[in-house]
Design a protein around this nucleic acid. Sequence first.
RNA 1: GCAGGGGUACCCGAGCUGGUCAAAGGGGCCGGACUUAAGCUCCGGUGCAUAGUGCUUCAUGGGUUCGAAUCCCAUCCCCUGCACCA
Length: 955
Amino acid sequence: MVYDSQKIETHWQARWNAEKVNHTDIDESREKFYCLEMFPYPSGYMHMGHVRNYSIGDAMARFQRLMGKNVLYPMGYDSFGMPAENAAKKEGGHPHTVTERNIAMIRTDQERMGYSYDWRRMFATSTPEYYHWNQEMFLKFREAGLVERRFAPVNWCDDCDTVLANEQVKNNRCWRCGLEVIQKDMAQWFLCMTKYADELLDELDHIDFPENVKSMQRNWIGRSNGAHIDFQVSNSDLVIGAFTTRPDTIFGVTFVTLSPEHPLCEELVSGTEYEKGWRDLRDECSRMSEFERINLLKEKKGTPLGRSVINPLTGLEIPIWVGNFVVASYGTGAVMGVPGHDQRDYDFAKKYGLEIKQVLSREEGGIANEENPVFDGLGWMVNSANSKFDGLFGNEAKAAVIAALESDKKGKGTVQYRLKDWLLSRQRFWGTPIPMLHCESCGVVPVPYDDLPVELPLDVTFSWDESGNPLAGHDDFLSTNCPQCNGPAHRETDTMDTFYDSSWYFMRFADSTNKEEPFNRNKVDYWLKGGVDLYIGGIEHAVMHLLYARFFTKATRDLGMNEIGEPFGRLVCQGMLNAPAPFCSECNTEYHVDNFGGTCPNCQADLGSRSAKMSKSLGNTVSPGEMVDRYGADTVRLFILFGANPEAGMDWSDNAVISNHKQLCSIIDAFDYGIKLADSPGPLDSWLLARLRLNQRHWRDSMDSVSLREGVMVSHFQMLSDWQWYLRRGGSDRATARRFLTGWAPMLAPATPHIAEEFWSLLGIGSKSSETMLATHEMEFELEDDNDLEVLSLEAYLREVIESARNLRSLAERHSEGSISKLVIQTSPSWKIKLAREAVRLESEGFDFKQQGQEYLKSLELFENEKLRGEIFQTWMTMTTGSKKKRGRIHTWNPGEKQLLISGFDENEVINSASHFIASVLDVDSVVSYSVGDGDDIGGKARVAFPLEPGIAFI
RNA sequence: GCAGGGGUACCCGAGCUGGUCAAAGGGGCCGGACUUAAGCUCCGGUGCAUAGUGCUUCAUGGGUUCGAAUCCCAUCCCCUGCACCA
């Protein structure tokens, strides 16, 4: 068979399509499997990262179909967002046009790869058919009290001309364009995600996510238990609330520090000599970029406010300061200073000469001394103003302080989160319009359900000259009437964050053509029971998308729309795809591939090469289309899956791609040859079929646990090398080959489906209708035979003997004068075999060789032989207890070898019947094997002959 | 600083519920066969020693054990996330 990948692949893609083999619907009689890849943004052609993502998903979807599961495997497009707007500006068109074109491009690429999506379910989020339901759910959330419109300082990106959610700000820079964000006060729409903070956090303990993802989400939610403590300002009604995780240190508070932006500051200092100091510090902080402010090396700075507060438990007055290290947005923006037990407070107190008080002891009943670095662990309370606290430890101490505060109404135990509500509104065009109106008399009013969807106008022209949101200047869109008073009103022009779209798309896939509601509850409950069974995507969404989607699922559950709770069962984060890039080891910098072979632009050193993440900026990308044209989709898929397990990073290598292509060619040769064999049963037939059964089990286990690399290793490598061994050993039977190939073809399907389907039809099994195609085939596994162990072990024994002989051959050459022409093998004498059987039998009965072994040996008739007695003893010990260095053979023989020993197989027979083969493999003229004593002791090897380890001599 | 994940032979990478581990598989490199010829295909080798058993190896140093790549402790280094978070 000539391997024309283009022809084979397009042929089968057309057939699968025509026979609708990938369509799935609810089938309660079968176990379901929902396989999903993270929603792609259609930015044009598919890139290698996509290829990796989908090749993993498709392999798993196909595998699960072979296992008889009812597989939901959909694809769609997350098509709202900025890039389409920018592209439209560039071209002077509409984002809608750009988006439709890009979707067509990526879909063509995906189809060419042979991914087995149920395309009937495909949708794009930028269509009114989808975002209609975004809007409806928004209104439902609002009715449930989950939507708020608040005036709040928000993160603003000037380049993107919009606000950003907290999650979308990385190192104070926009996650999309990298520009530094600034703070702006604006009225914005929020989704109250914090109401679900506890559930989002606690459920992580029960989800099958990778640890690093869980860890990132825990960090992000950032729950800390502690106390809110009210400090009354002296001679005033004002109260400063502070959050602390260490209420047990309350008696060590010697000052209170406010953030420079704290609203009370101005009131406290205005008109006093301290006002200037505060204003200077505040202005300095606001001028500073966030990057400078979080710089650890930066010095702590503060200024007193000239006022004091009262410690609620001691009644003592302590000064109020302002500190540049206090973050306004965390907790209350005020911190109680405990320099005795907090390093940061200690440094601050030292610098400004504030009092330092130790109130915790390292030992029970001990005392507390000033230490630097400070003691910030849990300890026993000492020096409390109220001695009833002294001696309390850790959590007990915290609880006692909280109880005292609560009874005095001066504070309470509380929980603080780092997680903020989800800032939903964006001042952009290409997103879901927020379905709200602003009425002059009624205020903010929701659009009635019947008037949904609020559609984006298509008669808008984009250009770089226009800044801001085109909706704000579009009168047809803007002006409307208030549904309550029928007076004039204008529409909300903010649109939704696109993460909203991807927060429920996995539920829409269960029912993507529903025109009455977002999705039918029964369908979602069927497909999403236990969550998406396998979700594959990048680690970059660990916090944002995965957290939003989890929140959404819980919120819709509480609206009665489903019963799921957690959207994703098993999550797999695929590793990076790397390719070589020029690298300067001096500057530790990678450069564009154009610099290959040149010198470092910075230091002029010769550039080396290093693997780096594929990126446009380095130019080290590889075009999937080009690779598919050259080698075919199956080769690209095989390379991707065999290159590394899904979670691991992998390096692109042209050589490896070529060698994978060769591997496919070899597999084709195997099928071509195997299919043409004539009836010729032989001794190797049972071995080949036993290997098939063993390989199938390994393969199934590996695939089942998404260890695709191991799976492919069995299906595309081990199976071939077993087949080749069969042929080398003279196997050549039609019926055996057919059974083997029939069992093999389905194993090839997950990674290389086209070639597998081709084989299936070559075998004459498939291709006639959808029922007989491999794509819909449910795999049957041959039961493992009781004899398999022995059959496999016999051949393994032969390979072991050949292996040992091969190793000895080169040594033997050095010691022999002429050239080597003959191999003489002496197998162990029968008494050694008897001992071995005896040892194996006893071992299986749990016999204690250390205690009773020698005595038992002496009881044997064999031991009467005085001439052999020494050797018998030594052999027995080697078999049973072993030496200091090496354990007894009864512990190192594997089950198969033990089986061989017990079965009483004849080593000489095995070797002699394969003598021609052994001779050819070892390049000798003849091979002869006999038991020690039945022939000459060549080379004195009788001595080393041991059961399963014959003496080997070359002459 | 906190948290998560790592450090295995020339490279990538498995193993890591302790013994069958000088350590799978692939790449690279070396050798052989085939061929007119190969960058094709097949076979073999790839820590050192060696007519087999021996020695030294799985970041470093200790420990547990009859026995450690695997378990425990400490140290060093790398990657990722969070971070003057109270």
